[in-house]
Amino acid sequence: MTRSSRPALGTFIFFALSLGLATYFTFAAVQGDFGLFRRAEIVAEADALQVQLEDVQSAVVRMENLTQRLSDDYLDLDLLDEQARSVLGMIRADEIVIR
């Protein structure tokens, strides 16, 4: 009884299967739904949304200021005059219009 010098078929299948699974999980860790590339996209999107949030917050503060200045409790006559002129399209007699 002589023993063959070639490796057993079971060992080959085990290592092939192990290599295949390692390749699959590595690919999933990089390219998958929760992989590294998706994480980079989420971080970039979060940064863009943070900038947009800051823009919206500054616009809200500006509108709150204008609303408060035109309220019944506090009336800014200069702002009221500016708004009335822009809506009605009128000027005073002593003003010069430059286009």
Rank of each mutant, 00 (worst) to 15 (best):
M1N: 04
M1E: 11
M1V: 14
M1F: 15
T2R: 14
T2M: 12
T2C: 07
R3D: 09
P7A: 04
A8R: 10
A8P: 08
L9N: 04
T11Q: 13
I13K: 03
F14D: 11
F15L: 10
F15N: 04
F15S: 06
A16C: 12
L17W: 06
L17I: 06
S18P: 01
L19V: 06
G20Y: 06
G20T: 06
G20W: 10
L21V: 04
Y24P: 00
F25L: 13
F25C: 03
F25W: 11
F25K: 06
F25V: 01
F27D: 02
A28N: 14
A28K: 15
A28P: 02
V30D: 02
V30L: 13
V30M: 08
Q31Y: 15
Q31E: 13
D33T: 13
F34Q: 12
F34E: 12
G35Q: 09
G35A: 10
F37K: 14
R38L: 05
A40K: 13
E41Y: 12
I42W: 15
V43G: 10
V43F: 15
V43M: 14
V43N: 12
A44D: 14
E45N: 13
D47S: 12
D47A: 15
A48T: 09
A48V: 08
A48D: 12
L49C: 01
L49N: 10
Q50S: 13
Q50V: 09
V51L: 12
V51N: 09
V51I: 14
V51M: 09
Q52P: 00
L53I: 06
L53A: 14
E54T: 04
D55H: 05
D55V: 01
D55A: 09
V56K: 11
S58K: 07
S58T: 02
A59H: 01
A59V: 01
V61W: 00
V61G: 01
R62P: 02
M63I: 04
M63F: 02
E64Q: 12
E64V: 02
E64Y: 00
N65L: 06
N65P: 01
N65T: 04
L66P: 00
L66I: 05
T67S: 14
T67H: 14
Q68L: 09
R69M: 11
L70G: 08
L70I: 03
L70F: 12
L70S: 09
S71L: 03
D72Y: 12
L75Y: 08
L75D: 05
L75T: 08
L77D: 09
L79E: 12
L80I: 06
L80D: 07
D81I: 05
E82M: 09
E82V: 06
Q83R: 11
Q83G: 03
Q83C: 09
A84V: 14
R85W: 02
V87D: 05
V87L: 10
V87E: 07
L88G: 04
L88D: 04
L88N: 03
M90P: 00
I91R: 09
R92H: 07
A93V: 01
A93K: 04
D94S: 10
D94Y: 01
E95M: 03
E95C: 01
I96P: 01
I96W: 01
V97K: 02
I98V: 15
I98A: 07
I98W: 03
R99H: 09
R99M: 02
R99I: 07
